[in-house]
Nucleic acid binder design. Structure first.
Lengths: 202, 202
DNA sequence: TGTACATCAGTGAACGCGCGTTCACTGATGTAC
DNA sequence: TGTACATCAGTGAACGCGCGTTCACTGATGTAC
């Protein structure tokens, strides 16, 4: 771990440091979880810069945390959208499952980030959980059109699935276990089995 | 808020301060949530004692937090057991509902405490969530014996219900809303509707 | 082409603060003889 | 009944630490004339 001096960013590219700061903060959250893991001095240390340098890109600690949450929310939604696209011409049930799997995978692999996203009181009414529910609802709608029967109205079913899936991963965060992802996927299958009533064959 | 001097506990009753300290810590968690709300100095301030006094009852900050978690876990289980007892000669479905209601009510009314109970990494493998699942499983077993049909095996159904219920209240913690309890109870009814398939009449 | 100046990326040192913890203590209440 | 001492509940002052934030700064790169 040689104390190698950072080469400063070229003229006009000072904004690059913003990304480096977010990366460093991200790493801290990975390793330590929770919002308290993000300290100005800690992030500066991790990024190899002076604490004061952070203030050129974030007004204060709160702004730094908000920036990270926004960053992470985008990542989660991107991962889910990717899973959706990748299965564009599959059975709608499989598409739903793919999205949920992507969700569970992201959340289990990024426990600190997910906790941060939901914990942050300053970010009430945040976009992400509603966006996730909407995404699930869209997938359910497609299932319905393909002839599946739901045991709840689409919007309630979407909430049910999101809430239960959230509960599942949140509990694994609280009590880590071996083979979390597998267990989570089993749980999600049971959940879909309750919500969806197979009616026609794909 | 007069700075009235505390009268010290009588000889041989020094252990009373332990309870006062836990009460004070409890109040802080209520108002501020999270484990960071519990600081030695803050608790001492709230209890009206000197910071050093806490060390007569708790080895260090960690021990204090553990003590509080233990305290809270007992309270939650007591509340659920009470709901179960109070409905001892009702329909088993109602008994299950009563227990879940008690759970939701406690958790929604004590968000900081619940978060603390689950957050605490030092308390992995904690007793409480397994105890809650067992309690639900027992109630489900009674439903089954009364002629209800479950769409999942009893143990998986209990996990499903606990996990989904947890997800529900956890999300309300993250995004508080008006009429939380009512909404939570609607959700729990939908959940029971999915898991239980009515087969006979009570 | 030279030069004065503006703009940029980033820093070092200092501030005041609240924290966890330690330690020697104070003063009241019990106990042994 | 008196007295020396042990035990108890609880404290005040100090420690070292890491924190968020500020401020005047350094030195490189661009721009105006």
């Amino acid at each position: 771990m040689t104390e190698q001096a950072r080469t400063r960013n070229p003229w006009g590219r000072g904004d690059r440091l913003r990304a480096e700061i977010l990366d460093a903060a991200s790493g801290l959250v990975d390793r330590l979880g929770g919002a308290d893991a993000i300290t100005i001095r800690g992030v500066a240390r991790a990024a190899g810069i002076a604490p004061a340098s952070i203030y050129q890109h974030f007004a204060d600690r709160t702004a730094l945390i908000s920036g990270l949450v926004e960053h992470d929310s985008k990542r989660l939604l991107a991962v889910m959208a990717l899973a959706d696209d990748a299965t564009a011409d599959s059975d709608p049930g499989d598409r739903l499952r793919a999205q949920l799997t992507a969700y569970a995978k992201f959340v289990l692999e990024n426990p600190g980030h997910y906790r941060l996203m939901l914990t942050l009181q300053e970010h009430r009414r945040q976009v992400s959980s509603r966006a996730v529910v909407n995404s699930i609802a869209a997938a359910l709608e497609r299932c319905q059109q393909a002839g599946w029967k739901l045991r709840l109205p689409v919007d309630r079913a979407a909430v049910m699935i999101f809430v239960a899936a959230h509960g599942c991963v949140a509990l694994f965060h609280a009590e880590p276990e071996a083979g979390e992802l597998k267990r989570a996927l089993v749980f999600l299958d049971e959940l879909l089995g309750l919500v969806l009533e197979r009616n026609s064959r794909a």
